[in-house]
Every structure is written in C-alpha cells, then in structure tokens.
Amino acid sequence: MNIFRLIGDMSHLLAIILLLLKMWKTRSCAGISGKSQILFALVFASRYLDLFTSFVSVYNSVMKIFFISTSLLTVYLMYFKFRATYDSNHDTFRVEFLVIPVGGLAFLVNHEFSPLEILWTFSIYLESVAILPQLFMMSKTGEAETITSHYLFALGSYRALYILNWVYRYYFEGFFDLIAVVAGCVQTILYCDFFYLYITKVLKGKRITLPA
C-alpha cells in the first residue's frame, strides 16, 4: 500500500458515498445513467469473485464487499425505489456495444486462460469504458448537477491516482501489470474532457453546461 493507492481507494469510496447521498437526500436519481451503474455492478461482481478463493487482507476484503454491495444498492435505488425519477429517455447508450467487444477481448488478451482470470480481465476492460453511458447522457442533456460533477470527479480521480500507484510500484516493487495499466490509462483519458470542465467551471462555482 502506498499513498497514491490509498488516496485513490478513498476517492473511489467517496464517489460511491456521494452518489448514494445525492440519491437519498433528493429522493431522486435524475441525471445519473442507470446503464453505467449496472456496468459498475457487473465490474465488481466479476472482479471480486476471488473473495471466495484467496485472502489478501481485512482491508482488501472489506473494500470488495463494500463495492459489491453499494453498487447493487445503487442499481436497486435507481431501478426500483426511485425509478419514477430515472431519466431513461436520455440514458440511451447501447451497452451491448461495450459488453460484447470487451468480453471478446477478455477472452483473447489475458494473463491466463482460466475462468477467474478471464472474468478479472473482463472487469478491468469493462471498468475502463463503463462511464461512457454517463458521459453520453450528459452530452445529450447538456448539463450536470454540481453534486453529480463532484461524484464524477472523485470517480475519475481514483484511476488517475492508481496510475501514479503503478509508476511507484514499478520502480519500488518491480510490479507491473500491463492489462491493468493500459486499461487504467484508457479509463483516465476518457475523463480528461470532464476534468477540464470540472476545473474551469465547477471549481469556480458554476454548473457544467455544454453548448448544444
């Protein structure tokens, strides 16, 4: 564990809590892509199956259980409890165009051709693009609430911090996982346009609005 990973994990945790608090306080999931949230639940469910096969640390297990359960809770809140507020008309990204190619790629490019390893690879690839339905939805509506912007900034920062963690681990531990690094870079690049808007608008007290 190094400082970049710890802050990265905390940022990821903060993002999930921010999203749940926003939904709970406003009794609404307006502006949130249910498709992205389903993809994140799929990411955690396919990645953390090793909860049953290997033990790393209490921290590791607790975080995994937290991520799986909160992602399921988020999907439940969006599609059941607060379904009336879900903006499905604007959540029209075709997720099969992500899941199918990513599934194929996980079969072809992986560290080891075994079920758990392929599922882990699938989850790494899927996570890198899982935010696309959310970004697509924002570009369709042309706006984002400030709390949604904070959520996305924390979520995007998490993988960017992991890149620094991988640089650190490469130099000091000789650890290097090409699949995670490439996917993590792709994931972070997808957020760059949003990061720019966040820094130039949200941090100056303005909402994110996009030109039509």
């Binding site: 090793d50 290997s54 790393v56 560290h111 882990w120 996982d177």
Partner: peptide, 10 residues
C-alpha cells in the same frame, strides 16, 4: 511481465 496470482489491488 510480472504479475501476482493473488490480486491485492481493488
């Protein structure tokens, strides 16, 4: 490429 069987990252 070195990789851990046991994945310690989240």
């Amino acid at each position: 490429i070195k990789k851990d069987k046991k994945k310690d990252e989240l």
